[in-house]
């Protein structure tokens, strides 16, 4: 009975297994990236970047249809251009980075949707916006796994400067020049993970598997390492449970995954050990010292 509900779908259907592998890989790569985005107070930057990727992928789609390579390359290029462009505008003018990013991503979203609508069908547009996790082919899986591998390795390499730049940027600059390059490498990871997520979950939801687990982790852990572990775990649980939900209830799979993450988030807000609502309302008797 339990087996039928929880395991059988993955045993019986290859597309479910592939979807599971894809989402687990995404959770492993995007979770830690999301944690750092949140700690750097850039939670909405992920959202903006996800939109920014759309026109790139759309141009790739225009040039060679639903080709993995073309759409990935387009998405990556667009993401990097926007990240760098927003950074340059922010440094060269009075505009702050968040405002210039907002300008850039709104324009790219409009361009992206226009391109897809003019040339493709509504189905294509849906694919772009919400992905198709149940139709991951070998190439796409390899791409996602590759992106995850790169991001775990790169994060390990830039971990110290990344943490230090959040806590005490003055100190980091006084001991090392690694802050700038680490920041750029980190932005590259954000773009890559969003492009990976785009194939499975679409541009709108890709950022969900990145940010929701990170925000959930904030309610359960007090230090960065534990936060990363909680984020990866909750991303993985959301992926697994979301796929089951979509299988049994016939819900669209991408949104189902993000919905499960949303439920976990709501639960964490209420019952989270670190600063959850219940904890704030009933902190327990105060301690002796």
């Amino acid at each position: 009975m339990i087996y039928d509900y929880l395991i059988a779908p993955f045993v019986e259907f290859a597309f479910m297994r592939r979807a599971l592998v894809g989402t687990l890989a995404l959770a492993l790569g995007a979770g830690p990236v999301g944690v750092f985005l949140m700690l750097r107070r850039m939670s909405l930057v992920g959202d903006a970047m996800a939109h920014a990727i759309l026109p790139g992928a759309a141009i790739g789609f225009l040039v060679s249809g639903l080709s993995l390579f073309a759409m990935t390359a387009g998405g990556l290029i667009a993401g990097f251009v926007i990240a760098l462009g927003a950074g340059v505008v922010a440094r060269a003018t009075e505009l702050k980075e968040d405002a210039s990013l907002a300008a850039f991503f709104l324009i790219s979203l409009a361009v992206g949707v226009t391109i897809v609508s003019l040339k493709g069908t509504n189905i294509d547009l849906l694919h772009f916006l919400f992905g198709s996790v149940l139709a991951l082919d070998d190439q796409t899986l390899l791409l996602i796994a590759g992106i995850t591998t790169i991001s775990v390795v790169v994060l390990a390499l830039i971990y110290r400067p990344l943490v230090l730049e959040c806590v005490d940027p003055g100190f980091l600059r006084s001991v090392s020049r690694a802050g700038g390059p680490a920041h750029i490498a980190f932005l590259a990871l954000v773009v890559m993970n969003l492009v990976g997520g785009f194939h499975a979950l679409g541009t709108l939801l890709a950022v969900g598997i990145m940010m929701l687990p990170a925000v959930i982790a904030r309610f359960w852990a007090r230090d960065v390492t534990a936060m990363i572990l909680v984020a990866v775990a909750s991303g993985a649980v959301s992926g697994y449970a979301g796929l089951l939900l979509s299988f049994h209830a016939g819900a669209p799979s991408g949104p189902a995954i993000i919905l499960v993450a949303g439920v976990l988030y709501a639960f964490s807000v209420l019952f989270g050990r670190v600063g959850g609502v219940l904890r704030q309302l009933f902190p327990g008797r105060h301690l002796e010292a």
């Binding site: 700690l39 806590v167 005490d168 003055g170 100190f171 006084s174």
Partner: peptide
Amino acid sequence: IAYLPQVADIDRTFPIS
């Protein structure tokens, strides 16, 4: 050169021990 920045420049909310 060892440098002590002003405390105001440090993000005290960052989860680090």
